[in-house]
Amino acid sequence: MCFNEHYTTTQLIRSLYIYGLLITLILKEMSRLHLFIAFIVFCLFFTSCLKDQENDKEKIVEITIYPETGYGASIMSDIWTQPLIFSDNDDNQKQMLVDIIFEGLDIDYERGYKYTLSAEKVWMHEPLQDVSSIKYVYIELLSKEKVITENSEENIELFVSPETVKFTPKYPSEFEDDQSPKIYNALHTKKTGSDNWMTLPAIEGFNFEEGYEYVLNVKKITQVDPYLIRFVLLEIKSKTLRN
């Protein structure tokens, strides 16, 4: 823009004002365009995130199954059993295989052996009710190693609850004459100072009376071949009546 000498001051101010308005309008239109583009990008990103959330997340992991089983029951059952104890190399946290889907798990598990296998870990977008939101899909067995190789004995102190619980052994499984799983009224017990409960069909030499809680000294005997764990009473330290 140029001005000649015949422009009055009023005309000059008016011209500058008009050009200022034009520049402001141009800048506003550019800002609106940028805002519109930013909005489109945000919508595309948000839609992509929603699609990711709607899909299951998957990852190949290495699973370790440990040589001794645990004691536990499904949230949908009052019958205790012997779940496998496992961890994966994604978080290395030991846990019992209870209320966790493990599709296609095909190993002939024997206590005393450590198993390493490959599996797909799946974070389910819509998990089934009463099961973990994480499931596993078996791929292949990588190794099987015997890690408990010697018989052993250990003296431990056990707390015994005043009420029994239902228990069906799994390794090995036991059956009634009609081939239904054998169910014991088992002792509900744990090592003193521990929060990990066990269910024992019997402690050799111990006569349990329901309604009493006990503290016992026992000998835990681990036999390697065939794999077997026994508990033998050494001493009744206390016996207390509970209502």
Rank of each mutant, 00 (worst) to 15 (best):
191 K>C: 00
191 K>A: 02
65 I>G: 08
234 L>I: 13
84 L>K: 06
236 I>D: 03
174 E>A: 08
82 Q>H: 05
37 I>F: 11
243 N>D: 03
208 F>E: 04
67 P>I: 15
149 T>N: 12
24 T>R: 13
115 Y>D: 02
220 K>R: 15
146 K>L: 05
227 Y>T: 06
18 I>P: 00
135 K>S: 12
19 Y>W: 07
11 Q>C: 04
178 D>F: 11
88 D>H: 10
75 I>K: 12
31 S>V: 11
198 M>K: 12
166 K>R: 11
160 V>Y: 00
211 G>C: 07
89 N>H: 10
158 L>K: 09
231 F>K: 05
77 S>K: 14
222 T>K: 15
237 K>R: 09
53 Q>D: 11
65 I>T: 08
203 I>T: 01
226 P>C: 09
243 N>V: 14
21 L>H: 12
95 Q>D: 00
178 D>V: 10
176 E>L: 15
226 P>N: 07
213 E>Y: 07
223 Q>C: 04
125 H>Y: 10
159 F>Y: 15
76 M>W: 04
137 V>Y: 01
47 T>G: 13
84 L>I: 11
39 F>H: 14
73 A>Q: 12
132 S>A: 11
157 E>G: 00
179 Q>M: 13
224 V>L: 04
187 L>G: 05
222 T>R: 13
192 T>R: 08
73 A>S: 12
96 M>C: 06
162 P>N: 08
208 F>R: 10
13 I>Y: 10
170 K>Q: 11
171 Y>E: 00
33 L>P: 00
34 H>M: 10
50 L>E: 14
56 D>Q: 06
71 Y>V: 07
19 Y>Q: 14
165 V>E: 03
180 S>M: 10
102 F>I: 08
210 E>Q: 13
223 Q>N: 12
103 E>D: 14
174 E>N: 03
80 W>M: 04
144 K>D: 00
148 I>R: 09
77 S>Q: 12
82 Q>K: 04
91 D>M: 08
74 S>V: 05
12 L>Y: 14
174 E>W: 05
200 L>H: 01
139 I>R: 15
167 F>P: 05
242 R>E: 07
227 Y>R: 11
5 E>L: 06
122 V>N: 06
233 L>E: 02
